[in-house]
């Protein structure tokens, strides 16, 4: 086993963590922009997203799914999110996996029906069916819609606000607070790790290639655990010093306005419409 691989692995892991940090910060910038959805009450946003998700999952109607997708793209534009940025985050990543499910479904072996095209691959005769293609498109649109709703919600809502919204839906305060603190301290640790890496590099050069470098990293990892333990008890002290006694209280800052209600109503109408379409036009 060569030392290079393990050193490279360490460094890549650390760099990965650091780029996660930068990535997340850039997402936070979107949430801080001055756009339509950024100004919406997160409670209404979450509820609307939930209603739309249910509608999408129940819909078998391509026209409806397309309208919803167009609506998502308009919302993204209204919220100061570039179309390319948004498409990159949705189209490129998540729906790729759905192709693996969708592609087999278009063939007669999986979805029997009216043949559209037939061809021969090696020994197999493959037939694509109309029903197969239709259901594949609907499936793909459903995934695309749901992913887009979720991404839009996350992009336009700051992490801590999203967390706070959990409280409205009766998730215990202590749980929400712990998640918030975890989120906060992940950054602190990434920061410490990054500084540590720079400090090591300044002393021994590239960590990846030297035995000493790896030793120092290992020793520092142990130190990091101790530091995390000490930090943990100090943070607890800091909470107690400001009156924390096991139950945390927070300031409620959510204000619902007319557009919030309008959005929720629109989402509910989409949901009811879907139910209605499914019941009467099968």
């Amino acid at each position: 086993m060569s030392g290079k691989t393990s050193g490279g692995f360490l460094e890549r892991t650390i760099q990965g963590a650091v780029s996660l940090l930068q990535e997340t910060v850039s997402v936070e910038n979107v949430a801080a922009r001055n756009g339509f959805l950024q100004h919406r009450d997160p409670r209404f946003k979450c509820l609307s997203a939930a209603a739309l998700l249910i509608a999408v999952l129940m819909s078998r109607n391509l026209a409806e799914l397309s309208v919803l997708y167009a609506a998502v793209l308009c919302m993204a534009l209204l919220s100061a999110i570039g179309l390319f940025f948004f498409l990159k985050r949705t189209l490129l990543f998540v729906p790729v996996f759905s192709l693996f499910i969708v592609v087999p479904a278009i063939f007669s072996g999986v979805t029997p029906g009216e043949p559209l095209a037939s061809f021969k691959v090696l020994l197999w005769n493959l037939t694509i069916t109309r029903q197969g293609v239709d259901s594949a498109i609907v499936f793909f649109m459903r995934v695309l819609d749901s992913v887009s709703f979720a991404v839009l919600l996350v992009l336009t809502t700051r992490q801590h606000v999203l967390l706070k919204t959990l409280r409205v839906f009766r998730v215990p305060q202590l749980f929400v607070m712990t998640m918030g603190m975890t989120y906060r301290y992940i950054f602190l640790f990434l920061d410490i790790i990054q500084k540590m890496l720079i400090a090591i590099k300044s002393r021994v050069g590239f960590v990846a290639s030297t035995r000493d470098g790896r030793k120092i990293v290992t020793a520092n990892m142990a130190g990091l655990w101790l530091r995390s333990y000490r930090l943990h008890s100090q943070v607890y002290d800091a909470m107690v010093a400001r009156g924390f006694s096991g139950e945390a209280f927070v300031l409620d800052e959510f204000h619902a306005r007319v557009p919030d209600v309008v959005i929720l109503l629109a989402a509910l109408m989409a949901l009811i419409g879907t139910l209605w379409l499914n019941l009467f036009f099968r």
Binding site: Q159, H160, L163, G180, M181, Y183, R184, Y185, L188, L231, Q234, V235, D237, A238, M239, R242, G243, F244, S245, A248, F249, V250, L251
Partner: peptide
């Protein structure tokens, strides 16, 4: 860093009086 444990500065500042 020990003292700022909330997701935003605002929440941190109001933490004490809220408790």
């Amino acid at each position: 860093d020990v003292q700022l444990f909330c997701p935003t500065v605002r929440e941190d500042i109001v933490f004490g009086p809220l408790q």
